[in-house]
Amino acid sequence: MYIDYDRKAHDWHSAWNSRDAKAICGLYADNVVFISPFVAKLGLSERGVLTDIRALYDYVSMTLSRVANLKYDMVANCVGSQGQTIVYRNQSSHIVAETLEYNDEGLIRLANVAFSTAPIKRKNYGSR
């Protein structure tokens, strides 16, 4: 099955920045495995793993309500042999890498999220 990873990255980015939990979860399979240290931080799973769309919807809804200024700025779309890693800067200036794998219907079946350990300071070169 052909997957347009640039389109997938665009759709993912647009959904998250829309702050619409239904639009976001519409990108994921019902049996998604979602792994993130933020899941553990919110107390939703000790290991940071969610294993279905209902749990992901609860996580997304909680995240959107807790992070009023949530915004992702794309840094890179890295394509691999079995999926992609979307790299972005979040509203706290942390660099985040989210590795996504897709099922046969083109929905995200696995998402593994990793955060930088400290915000990355923006540098101003020249007169920008």
Rank of each mutant, 00 (worst) to 15 (best):
L64R: 08
S45Y: 02
C25S: 13
T51S: 13
K8T: 03
Q84N: 11
H13P: 10
T63G: 09
M62D: 11
D30Y: 01
N112S: 11
S116M: 11
C78E: 12
Y102I: 06
T99E: 09
D58F: 02
T99C: 03
G83D: 05
S93G: 03
G106D: 11
V75H: 08
W12I: 05
Y28K: 04
Q82K: 13
A76Y: 11
Y2E: 14
R122M: 06
M74K: 15
L64D: 03
V49R: 00
V75W: 03
S92E: 13
K8H: 12
A23D: 09
Y57W: 10
G106M: 08
A68E: 15
R19T: 04
G26W: 08
D4P: 01
R122P: 03
T63V: 11
D6R: 11
I3D: 10
L27R: 14
A114T: 14
W12E: 10
V75P: 02
R7G: 07
A111G: 05
R47A: 00
S36T: 12
H13N: 13
N17K: 02
D4Y: 03
S92F: 15
A40P: 07
R128V: 12
A21I: 03
H94C: 03
H94M: 10
V79R: 12
G83Q: 09
N17D: 06
R122G: 07
L56W: 04
Y59S: 04
N31H: 07
Y59K: 01
Y59G: 01
N112G: 02
V39R: 10
T85V: 08
R54F: 10
F34Q: 03
D58G: 03
V32K: 02
R7F: 07
D4S: 05
P119D: 02
K71Q: 14
A55S: 14
Q84I: 02
I108D: 11
N69S: 15
L64G: 08
R89W: 08
R128E: 13
V113S: 05
S14T: 14
Q84M: 12
N69T: 15
G83T: 06
H10L: 06
K8C: 11
K8E: 15
G83H: 05
P37K: 15
A111F: 01
F34N: 05
D11P: 06
D11T: 06
L27Q: 15
V87F: 01
P37V: 14
N124L: 07
L44T: 08
H10I: 07
A76R: 14
L110D: 09
